[in-house]
Design a binder for these strands. Structure first.
Lengths: 148, 148
DNA sequence: TGATAAATGCAACTCACTTGCAACTTGGAA
DNA sequence: TTCCAAGTTGCAAGTGAGTTGCATTTATCA
């Protein structure tokens, strides 16, 4: 029976630096949460992070996951992804280009879309509205090949 | 003291037709909810609809507002607008062009953006992913002139 | 090694939204 | 005009995501 926790992965130095710069400690629960986020190729929910930690025998309280995700968001290490599902998803930022997502209305499957057509438009909107734009959310919804 | 309810407005025939076609009844609470939605120039929340009805001396239970908004969404008479505030907003569709929104991170102010750059991109994504795209959500976040 | 600031886990809470059900409207048929 | 079935409403109670308070624990650094 496998009793060791295999979440000890190599964390990029830049991430550790960001944490140190923010006066954050590298606790065991925090390392495990960071590992799950880094391993996940698509945005995941807080509950999913907690579930995976439980399965990996590194159970962490849901509250701790919420607090860590909020902290990582403040440090801009994770992006929130809102797909109008009733809960938020989060994805690691490190080493990934700015992108968007499409989700199937049938099975819920999420696919990365490695594109963003909004740079020019952002400037135009700033000119017209006098807002200073900080970010945007763009998601597509539809039906995947299997669910059509 | 004003005792009459001034929510009796002229409802577009097309809306009434959609309701009839769906086997829906035109109850007093429903008419009042439709009136609030039609009068609102920006997306509003369920709680805001209920508040406005209370002020107009036409109080309707929150549950009834939720149920009506869900029904209007199914009939495609209102659009959901998710600004990641912890609650959804809704806007009447009738007589308004497809558009998007920008919200100030300071004061929460919402402004309509009468544009959409996503038609061509949607076709491209359908080609590449083999999804059939049904809709998209695009919101901008930033700081309005007063909050900068 | 010891001090201290940060982090954790638990319990209890808030708030958006949903569900079950009995009582009440609406709108069409008799 | 009256009656009735389908649809609708309001209330109470429930669900589920996310938050808060607080006592205990842990990482970090002098």
């Amino acid at each position: 029976m496998q009793l060791t926790c295999n979440l000890e992965i190599q964390m990029a130095e830049s991430i550790l630096d960001s944490l140190r710069a923010g006066g954050k400690k590298l606790t065991k629960p925090r390392k495990a949460i960071l590992a799950i986020l880094e391993q996940s190729s698509l945005p995941i929910t807080v509950a999913e992070i907690a579930d995976q930690l439980k399965k990996a025998r590194a159970a962490v309280d849901l509250v701790t996951v919420y607090r860590n995700v909020a902290m990582l968001q403040e440090l801009k290490l994770v992006n929130p992804v809102g797909l109008h599902e009733g809960q938020m998803r989060y994805e690691f930022r490190h080493g990934r280009e700015h992108h968007h997502h499409i989700q199937c209305r049938g099975c819920g499957q999420i696919v990365d879309l490695m594109l963003c057509p909004l740079k020019k438009l952002t400037e135009l909107i700033e000119e017209q509205t006098k807002f200073v734009i900080e970010g945007h959310a763009l998601e597509f919804f539809g039906w995947c090949p299997q669910c059509q």
